[in-house]
Design a protein around this nucleic acid. Structure first.
Lengths: 219, 219
DNA sequence: TCAATAGTGTCTGTCAGACATTATTAC
DNA sequence: GTAATAATGTCTGACAGACACTATTGA
């Protein structure tokens, strides 16, 4: 067993939809290294507190960002001797999808940037965000994952906007509705949204975010 | 920075096709913990030797298994206080696809088991193999990844058998050929395989294993 | 000539995209 | 009524699956 183990951390790419566009949350680092530089929220794994990397991310989301009960999953692990000046390091990167309304009111040190226009970031975090976007694109078309950006209930139009934001490009209206209905991805709540002219039926997911087998066609 | 960091290892799920069925490579552990139990090949990350986890896997494949130059990619990272009796540990699991002919002749301590009938394994390696299978299924239909099980050149029938082994189930002959051709996944070599009655044209991939956008239909 | 495998042609049902149409509300 | 948004109906082209057919070899 080697005497010295790599530094082990977790990082979270926290995404949300603002004005139908994907945004990623960054914080300004308060400590060295990269003090004052924007970075993904993250932290060390605490062997005494965490039961898994997943658990460590939940702790970071909660304690550093005030975010609870959102959908997140492991993205991939980044590693190497040079990515952190403190030494050979590992970051188990995760991707989290947060409904806009579920973000804490106090957001002084949590800044959202559109993914289409990102600032310079600490460590290799630009690479991590790029990997998150690739994953989201790849998985978006094959899962109900984009629904994680919406609240408990949503209209079909809102759902379509979420898919479009994730996949980029626009989708066919009736094909989208047909597909969503026949795959039984959603069920009616019986309620209606009255924020638009004609009220829109509100739906909820029939199950947690999951994958399916046929693409919901892009533009 | 916490004083004690988790144990950091890499493991490899090495897969190959034997008689058109997926097999995974296991070795009998020569040391504690789990001495004498079957396990995935793996090892510690060596901060002084490895430039990345990917690099560590390449070293393990080469030094422990005699396998060079095969396609492999990161699967996911497993972590927790209980998966290794030596303490809080991380395993960055990888999945490797090896053509049957490229395995070293000497294979005394490398035993292949069909994925449909796996033995008990050390650590949480059963879970890792299950994750590898799920990944392979999910990605198989959307990439030329199954071709990584074949040699440099192959017949279309061999390619179809590889897809079928990865995806499970059988595929439509002419639909498969049509799709493969119109996606320009392969190109003719001009050579012919003479192992069957009628010679079959030999093809090679036009590019490295990669993803595409439409499924190659299963049965 | 027959068996075995490689490879092609064509029909058909399904489904995604396009787009016209209807429905329900606010003003 | 008119504007705006929600939701549906229907036509059409593309394509996957089915399957019959042809091609090329060994024995």
């Amino acid at each position: 067993m080697p005497s010295e183990m790599p530094i082990t951390t977790v990082d979270a790419v926290i995404l949300t939809l603002i004005d139908d566009k994907l945004h990623v949350m960054l914080t300004e680092r308060s400590q060295e290294p990269f003090k004052g530089v924007l970075a993904l929220p993250g932290g060390f794994i605490h062997a005494d507190k965490d039961r898994s990397a997943h658990d460590a991310v939940r702790r970071v989301l909660s304690s550093k960002c005030g975010i609870e009960g959102v959908y997140f999953e492991q993205l991939m692990t980044f590693s190497g001797p040079d990515r952190d000046p403190r030494g050979w390091s590992i970051s188990i990167a995760h991707i989290a999808m947060v409904p806009r309304g579920q973000l804490p009111a106090d957001a002084d040190d949590m800044i959202f940037f559109p993914v289409s226009d990102l600032p310079d970031m600490a460590f290799d975090h630009a690479e991590i965000v790029a990997a998150a976007m690739a994953r989201l694109r790849g998985k978006g078309a094959w899962s109900t994952l984009p629904a994680a950006f919406l609240g408990e209930t949503f209209t079909l139009t809102e759902l379509q906007r979420a898919y479009e934001a994730v996949l980029g490009g626009s989708m066919n209206l009736s094909a989208f509705r047909r597909k969503v209905m026949e795959l039984d991805l959603v069920e009616e709540t019986g309620e209606f949204s009255r924020t638009t002219k004609r009220p829109a039926a509100l739906y909820r997911l029939t199950r947690e975010p999951h994958s399916f087998n046929r693409i919901i066609g892009g533009s």
